[in-house]
Design a protein around this nucleic acid. Structure first.
Length: 817
RNA sequence: GCCGCGGUGGUGAAACUGGUAGACACACAGGACUUAAAAUCCUGCGGAUGCAAAUCCGUGCCGGUUCGAUUCCGGCCCGCGGCACCA
């Protein structure tokens, strides 16, 4: 028996392929183009993860099949190499981040190459390469030019351990996403990108793309658009008005108080002398509370009366103004009209501070009414509907009551009528609010793209002219972050001190760098023309290749990278750089690979599976095939070494196959054609696990019955995207001189997959009782008769006359008695 | 709390638009080969009863539709992921 020497085979073919142009994408080819993309890795010091192998292999299978189907496939790879872990590692070891990065890339590259993924290495990119980040900086300048990049003093999430400002997206439960330390608020001047200007388009254009439904919903929820109105409430005895945002203008008649966020700018002006002490104290408390306390300790509402009153424009009643930290400064106008009868939070607050609760919405179905005890007395001021106020508030829609001329209307109609009235009176207008905030784009770190701005004593913030790009990161010895929050770049005098590009006066460079999301927000465009020195990419080439047909990536990037890169592409589309308004036509996601113990793999748990060892011991093809077979591609699965051994056995079986039979029967040919159909379909649907099991069934069968050379070669073609080295080796050893990957993908013959004989199930009352083997062209009545007369069936019929006989062609006969 | 996904053997899982539940693989058990082991090959493998033939039960739980439900409908239970004082 031949010994399956995977190492020798894999090394040999990897060398042969590297010298060929097999996997090179061809600009302008007449063939149909296909651009498939995997998220480029961050080359961390840990090396490649088995999770990378899963998605790279899956898309590799698709890429290889599409090439064999005659398509011009672009399947590129690169390195998303700026980032904090590299900088931290550099600080710890004293090795420069650029050197660390180069080493890590070398490891990743060796590991990926050992897997036989058909990447087009001619298009390799690296976000830390000045020739690349020149264009990242260029995009920033364009954003600045269009007013979409701006500087703002704002409280940012500050991680005291990493000494870095974090975007809202990087803060999880009030803690740093990376190190888990609780974040603080710090007021700092930050560069911001106006992603909110694209909020509507980022929602609406989702309709034009084919993303997994859960990805779309997650993005929509993250943007969090809500329609409503801004309404002005006159402050009693003052000229000023308070602007509130509400999604429920229909409840305005039930607004019995106003709540301002503690930080609201009006607070200090309207507070009365008697209340001032309490208010100041509360404000101080609110400031001291961390984000975590403010969001997590939501058990009880707290707040303070300001002493001031406003007038409800609908009821003309005087209503008290409170401050409370359940109203956020950062959302809406930082002020609300509180409608305790129809909002849970307002209800809770009103009960605690004994504020009147007035029902103005009748729920669609009137349930049992339980009269409210505590607040009836104070509600008495309104003098009505006491008995109808429920113990629980109703926050849904319904029919308006106690709302003057709007009584009897449904919430939806009432809302628009009330808004129309407010607009006419000039005290309100329709508006839209988003949860999405502008993107905090500054990082006080060394290992990132320098922001190409200088501050001139005379001209202020001045963008660098395009000819001065790239603005290179200076090579320095020290890159520790500072406690002051300034970037390490700030201490490099010779770099910071410069002259104004406009007027020549002394100027200082911006010392903040870009976040690591910058380089990955446009990389899919650079693959198309990675060596272009004059432009980000040639516009004709972009037209040829864009959009990406298939984009695979992790769910964890749905609200970060995916949203950011869609935003940047839309911007580039608006300035006529990108030819498409949506960069990715289809977005899919792979399930995570868990450790054998079912836990997430992590260094600290010591349960990480290293792909190098698997390639070494079992071979790249085994690893690839195992990861495709282990479970449904989009679901998480736990690693199982025994499964790997099973796949090794399967490949050895193929390698040593020798049961040749040139007179194979129709059974084998038919099975082969069924397999062609099934495997082709499964690859399209990404059901890789069942594609592999189809191959196993075929191999089991030909081991038993024998198989012709011709059929075996077709089988090798089906196997080749999954186990490219083995398939190529056997293909070659059967006397083929050219690569199997230049072969055409097999097509099945429909007439060959029809069976000559079929098995018909006989059921009595839906229960399986017998099986019949009949010829495929049998007549319906004949089957029915056979079924009735089958010995086993007769036993259950006991001479009873069937009421009904159901026949499903090719499947079953069901006799109902 | 809201949104999304899922629940099938000892394990990973299959099952097209309702039609043989458990394909394929792993683990396990028995056997062959071997001085022995590994490897390989053969057999069995959802549960219960039974010497066997066979019968009954079985896709989270309860109910419905249907000749027939893992699949469709209604109600619940559990697990996972995301968001969360967003007015």
């Amino acid at each position: 028996m031949k010994k399956y020497n995977n190492k020798k085979i894999e090394r040999h073919w990897q060398k042969v392929w590297a010298k060929s142009d097999l996997y090179a994408a061809e600009d302008w080819s007449e063939k149909q183009r296909y651009y498939c993309l995997v998220e480029f890795p961050y080359p961390s010091g840990d090396g490649l993860h088995v999770g990378h192998v899963r998605s790279y292999t899956a898309i590799d299978i698709i890429a290889r099949k599409k090439r064999m189907q005659g398509m011009n496939v672009l399947y590129p790879i690169g390195w998303d190499a700026f980032g904090l872990p590299t900088e931290n590692y550099a600080i710890k070891t004293g090795k420069h981040p650029a050197i660390v990065t180069a080493e890590n890339i070398k490891t990743f590259k060796r590991q990926i190459k050992s897997l036989g993924i058909s990447f087009d290495w001619n298009r390799e990119i690296n976000t830390t390469d000045p020739n690349y980040y020149k264009w990242t900086q260029w995009i920033f300048l364009k954003l600045f030019e269009k007013g979409l990049a701006y500087k703002k003093k704002m409280p940012i999430n500050w991680c005291p351990k990493c000494k870095i400002g974090l975007a809202n997206e990087e803060v999880i439960d009030g803690s740093c996403e990376r190190c888990g330390t609780q974040t603080e608020k710090r007021e700092m001047e930050q560069w911001m990108l106006k992603i909110t200007a694209y909020a509507d388009r980022l929602i609406e254009d989702l309709e034009t793309v084919d993303y997994l439904e859960k990805i779309k919903t997650q993005q929509i929820n993250w943007i969090g658009r809500s329609y409503g109105a801004e309404i002005d409430f006159q402050i009693q005895g003052r000229e000023e008005r308070i602007k509130v945002f509400t999604t429920r203008p229909d409840t305005i008649f039930g607004a019995t108080f106003i709540v301002l966020s503690p930080e609201h700018e009006l607070v200090n002006r309207i507070v009365t002398t008697e209340q001032e002490k309490d208010v100041l104290k509360y404000q101080a408390q609110a400031r001291a509370k961390s984000e975590l306390e403010r969001t997590q300790l939501q058990k009880e509402k707290t707040g303070v009366f300001t002493g001031a009153y406003a007038v409800n424009p609908a009821t003309h009643k005087e209503i008290p103004i409170y401050i409370a930290d359940y109203v956020l400064t950062t959302y809406g106008t930082g002020a609300i009209m509180a409608v305790p009868a129809h909002d849970e939070r307002d209800f809770e607050f009103a009960k605690k501070y004994e504020i009147p609760i007035v029902q103005v919405i009748q729920p669609p179905k009137i349930k049992e009414h339980r009269p409210l005890e505590s607040n009836i007395a104070s509600a008495g001021a309104y003098g009505h509907l006491q008995s109808e106020i429920e113990d629980q508030c109703w926050s849904g829609e319904g029919t308006l009551v106690n709302s003057s001329t709007f009584n009897g209307l449904d919430s939806e109609i009432a809302s628009s009528m009330i808004v129309a009235w407010l607009e006419k009176e000039n005290i309100g207008k329709k508006t839209t609010q988003y949860h999405l905030r502008d993107w905090v784009f500054s990082r006080q770190h060394y290992w990132g793209e320098p922001i190409p701005i200088v501050y001139c004593e005379k001209c202020g913030a001045v963008p660098l002219p395009e000819k001065d790009l790239p603005l290179e990161l200076p090579m320095v010895e020290r890159y520790e972050p500072t406690d002051t929050g300034e970037s390490p770049l700030a201490s490099i005098d010779y770099w910071v001190k410069t002259t104004c590009p406009d007027c020549g006066s002394p100027a200082r460079r911006e010392t903040d760098t870009m976040p690591n999301w910058a380089g990955s927000s446009w990389y899919f465009l650079r693959y198309i023309d990675p060596k272009n020195k004059k432009q980000l990419a040639d516009s004709e080439k972009l037209k040829y290749w864009m959009p990406v047909d298939l984009y695979n990536g992790g769910m964890e990037h749905t609200t970060l990278h995916l949203l950011y890169s869609r935003f940047w592409n839309k911007f580039l589309y608006d300035i006529n750089v990108s030819p498409v308004s949506e960069p990715y036509y289809k977005r899919i996601s792979h399930g995570m690979i868990l450790a054998p113990d079912g836990q997430k793999m992590s260094k600290s748990r010591g349960n990480v599976i290293n792909p190098d060892e698997l390639v070494e011991e079992y071979g790249a093809d085994v690893l690839r095939l195992y990861e495709m077979f282990m479970g449904p591609y989009d679901q998480p699965v736990a690693w199982d070494l025994n499964g790997v051994r099973g796949i090794r056995r399967f490949l050895e079986k193929i390698y040593s196959f020798d049961n040749w039979n040139e007179n194979e029967g129709r059974e084998i040919i038919s099975l082969l054609h069924k397999s062609i159909k099934k495997i082709s379909d499964d690859i399209e649907k990404r059901h890789f696990n069942t594609a592999v099991s189809t191959m196993m069934i075929f191999v089991n069968k030909i081991q038993e019955k024998g198989c012709s050379k011709k059929s075996f070669q077709i089988f090798l073609q089906l196997l080749s995207p999954f186990a490219p080295h083995l398939a190529e080796e056997l293909w070659n050893s059967l006397g083929n001189n050219d690569s199997i990957f230049r072969e055409k993908w097999p097509e099945y013959d429909a007439s060959l997959i029809v069976d000559e004989e079929m098995e018909i199930v006989v059921q009595i009352n839906g229960k399986l009782r017998d099986k019949l083997v009949v010829s495929a062209d049998i007549d319906e009545n004949e089957v029915k008769t056979m079924a009735k007369e089958s010995e086993k069936a007769r036993k259950f019929l006991e001479g009873k006359e069937p009421k009904k006989i159901i026949y499903v062609k090719g499947k079953l006969v069901n006799i109902v008695v």
